[in-house]
Simulated scan of single mutants.
Amino acid sequence: MTIAEAKLKERVKELTCLYEVTSIIVNSDYDQLETSFKAIVHCFKKAWQFEDITEVLLSVGEYHVKTEGFRSDMVNIRSDIKVFNKVDGQIVVGYPSEKYAVSDFLKEEKTLLDNISLAIGNLMERKQIHDSEVATRRQMERTDRLHILGEITAGIAHELNTPLANILGFAELLKEKVNKEENVRDLNKIMDNAIFSREIVKKLMFFACEMPQEMKPVLLKPVIESVLKLLAPSLREKKINLAASFSNDSMTLRADTVQLTQVMFNLIMNAVYYSPTNGNIDLNISEKEKVIRIRISDEGKGVAVENEDKIFEPFFTTKPIGEGSGLGLSVVHGIINSHKGSISYESNTPKGAIFTIDFPKL
């Protein structure tokens, strides 16, 4: 084979590889990128001059794919993969160092490597944009769903208030007229259940932002310290270590003190409930440019992926029957929303939950 024929053969291999890799990228499923990267690595082996001993490593973001014989001590050429102008990985092509040198790689092979790195970087950029759009769409759908639920809930709460008040009022009147202890006991049960139902209605109205508020500047640290004192027995019972930190002791919000207390109590109580014995809870309050951020993280079991979109919906709970009404987080969401703030959930590492609240600064 002449030198010209050999060069032509190499160019054909390189162009074939570029075509195959481009086809793989165009048809990639964003949820199965590792499969695509494995196919790309396989294409690489066939494109290099000494394809029988070529080994490849492709590492980008969370993905790490390599051929079976790749070793870190191989003589190699590499190209960085940039995602939005930041290096996020690399492709490395290697030969056995005992027989080959860097000079054995062709200039055209380095050009091919750079072109494919650029194509993979573009793919990762499109994936990030796609993931961001999906997350935004889910957030909008959840907001719309919560808004509709809020309107329905407000109507139900108003409708239930009157009959509950009547049940409670007439039960109190009957209690004054009866003398038998067993009858009084039955009436007490009626009254207790009516009061319990009324409290649920109040929570529904909190979720729907129908409760009146007394908004005023509130110093945040004393409110949180008061909540922690209330929860001290629960923390001691499970031997939980709660670490609270404040970036500034004088952080102030415009808020309803009672509702702010309820938000903190519900979120920390949830963290205590799901935390294991001797677990750790981290409570961090910091001042950002435009918001005051409250971050509560625990080491519990966290929230299953399929339930993440439901956690702020009323009556949704993962607690056993009788241990939760499913209104705690929906009430928290309603209160924070009425304070023009936001709340978000993310999983903790290696396990647990993180709730982040942003309140607008005064």
Rank of each mutant, 00 (worst) to 15 (best):
R137K: 06
T67C: 03
D249C: 01
V21K: 01
E214D: 15
I129E: 11
C17H: 05
N307Y: 15
S103D: 12
L187R: 05
F44V: 10
K45V: 15
I120C: 01
A244F: 04
M269F: 13
E109W: 08
E346W: 06
R78T: 09
A39F: 05
H339P: 04
D73Q: 15
R293I: 03
H147C: 10
G61D: 07
A171Y: 10
L146P: 00
Y100K: 03
E287H: 03
A4E: 04
E108L: 15
L220C: 07
V178R: 12
M1T: 14
E210T: 04
S342C: 10
R236H: 13
K203M: 10
P276Q: 11
Y345A: 13
S286E: 01
G169W: 09
W48P: 00
P217R: 07
F70H: 09
L164E: 02
Y100P: 00
D298K: 08
H42S: 00
R293S: 03
F355M: 10
A135Q: 02
H158F: 11
Y274M: 13
L112Q: 04
D186L: 15
F359S: 07
T356D: 03
L8K: 14
I40E: 01
L242E: 04
I296K: 02
E346M: 10
A244E: 00
M191S: 09
A243N: 00
L329A: 10
R138V: 14
P217S: 08
T136E: 15
M264K: 00
N122P: 00
T356R: 03
Y100Q: 03
E141G: 12
V201C: 03
E151Y: 14
S286F: 02
Y345D: 10
F312V: 05
D282Y: 12
I357T: 05
L57W: 13
V258I: 14
I294A: 02
F105Q: 05
K127Y: 13
Y273I: 12
S79A: 08
D114G: 02
V227K: 01
E14A: 11
I195E: 01
L220Y: 09
T318R: 12
I200M: 13
M140S: 08
D31S: 12
I129P: 02
K107T: 14
K351N: 01
T16S: 04
L57T: 11
H158N: 04
S197P: 01
C43Y: 00
I148V: 15
Y345L: 14
A208I: 05
V83M: 09
D31L: 12
A243H: 00
H147A: 13
S234I: 11
C17T: 08
A232Q: 15
V92H: 07
